[in-house]
Design a protein around this nucleic acid. Structure first.
Length: 289
DNA sequence: CTCAGCTCCTGCGGGC
DNA sequence: TGCCCGCAGGAGCTGA
């Protein structure tokens, strides 16, 4: 389920246990996630040293000293759990934990490092996937080749988005979810950004004014920055005592708030829900016009 | 090229 | 209480 802020939160939690460490053991509890894991996955990882753990859009990239990069995507329900046997307690850096996910049957991949730290990948729905790609060729790989700019980077700006929206009849909602246009947004943050910028989700993107597009790029940056600072959003959680759950869900202005009052000061609208491309869009029909 | 619709998978919560 | 249905933070594929 994670979008960019959640993946970034996971990255920050995992980096201290992965970066600079050697993988002493890797175990697979099944041969595939969403896609089959590559041939020799375990062998190619075992004994390799992780140099850095970075993020591109919703992907985690662990570059290895052997010239490969371990690429990980959490799909809808992927989650990592760190176990430090010495400390005895488990941490949940991404906070994506439910009663069900706690079930060992969804522990698909287990890494162990030379500090005897165990990192377990859980993914009940198995929409997540992993790959092992030659680092030099990463940019040419199908997963990254056509990927749009990072929404928090310099290439995502009003001029760029203006060009991307020009002449398009699809709504801004659909286009912002397209990772080829901008990479890292998902359903929550697109809904929130459109609301902040007061842009209707359904009207043709080609008709959005330059001023509104400029406001939209600012809104995207703001909502992502705030969400990262909050540790992301945790939708399905139970009261874990470790404090690692994200809390940006309390700052949602429209997402998952159908029938509730619009939170824009002075607006008397009621949040509506429509379906676009099979996904829920939450918006305020009064102020997003 | 663009766009709508469907698919993968499992679990949960609401309504009857 | 139990069952059925709709829905879920993603993204790739098909076919018009």
């Amino acid at each position: 389920m994670p979008e960019l802020p959640e993946v970034e939160t996971v990255r920050r939690g995992l980096a201290p246990v992965f970066a600079g460490r050697r993988l002493t053991a890797v175990r697979l509890n099944r041969p595939d996630l969403r896609f089959p894991l590559p041939d020799g996955f375990v062998q190619r990882l075992s004994g390799a040293r992780v140099e850095t753990l970075e993020r591109r859009a919703k992907y985690l990239l662990a570059s290895l000293d052997r010239g490969d990069t371990l690429v990980m995507h959490l799909g809808m329900s992927g989650r990592f759990e760190i176990d430090r046997p010495a400390a005895g307690a488990a941490e949940r850096p991404g906070g994506f934990r439910t009663r069900v996910e706690a079930d060992a049957k969804h522990a698909h991949v287990i890494f162990e490092t030379d500090e005897a730290v165990r990192v377990t990948y859980y993914d009940p729905r198995r929409f997540g996937f992993m790959g092992l790609i030659e680092t030099k060729a990463l940019g040419q790989h199908a997963w990254f080749k056509a990927m749009g700019p990072e929404p928090l980077g310099p290439d995502f700006n009003a001029a760029y988005l203006n060009a991307a929206f020009a002449g398009r009849r699809q709504g801004p909602k659909t286009l912002l979810l397209d990772q080829r246009i901008v990479a890292g947004l998902g359903n929550i943050y697109v809904c929130e950004a459109l609301h902040r910028a007061r842009i209707p989700p359904l009207a043709p993107a080609g008709g959005v004014s330059r001023a509104n597009i400029a406001a939209l790029t600012g809104a995207v940056r703001a909502v992502l920055t705030e969400a990262i600072a909050a540790g992301g959003s945790t939708l399905k959680d139970y009261a874990a005592a470790d404090g690692a759950l994200g809390y940006f869900q309390h700052a949602f202005r429209v997402y998952s708030r159908e029938g509730q009052p619009c939170l824009r000061p002075g607006c008397r609208g009621t949040v509506a829900r429509i379906v676009q491309g099979g996904r829920s869009t939450f918006f305020c029909p009064v102020c997003q016009r």
